[in-house]
């Protein structure tokens, strides 16, 4: 006689274990819970601003723009969400640091403030 009875006994045992009962009420962690709507837009704005400033620093050779780009990259790194990928962060850092280096290579004079 194949051990159907043994299998049925196991199924019955499983159904009545406390964990199984509670399992009826388990729900996995909702990946995008409703409160993600109140998301923080700062890292994205700072990232965009950083890109614009480093472009200005590189193209128009304005040193204070390059320094502002470094600050924006720093602020967007500080406010970044852990779910965000680090590639975006790395690229904005590299761009802003290269803007500073390039603008000092072209003319090593000290920076003249924008005012």
């Amino acid at each position: 006689m194949p051990n159907y009875t043994f299998l049925a006994f196991c199924m019955l045992y499983l159904v009545f274990t406390p964990y199984f009962q509670l399992a009826l009420f388990f729900r996995r962690y909702p990946k995008a819970p409703a409160n993600s709507v109140v998301d923080d837009p700062t890292p994205d704005y700072m990232n965009l601003l950083g890109m614009v400033f480093s472009m200005c620093g590189l193209m128009l050779k304005m040193k204070w723009c390059a320094w502002a780009a470094v600050y924006c990259a720093f602020i967007s790194f500080a406010n970044s969400r852990s779910s965000e990928d680090t590639k975006q962060m790395l690229s904005s850092f590299m761009l802003s640091i290269s803007a500073v280096v390039m603008s000092y290579l072209q003319n090593p004079q000290p920076m003249s403030p924008p005012w």
């Binding site: 509670l22 009420f25 388990f26 962690y29 819970p33 406010n79 852990s82 779910s83």
Partner: peptide, 25 residues
């Protein structure tokens, strides 16, 4: 705690009769 960002931590609890789950942020 699940670290969502430097200042946001969340905790999901489940497994209680009558309640799907509780999200603490």
């Amino acid at each position: 705690l699940l670290k969502e960002s430097e200042n946001v931590y969340s905790l999901w609890c489940t497994g209680r009769v009558g309640c799907e789950g509780m999200l603490v942020t």
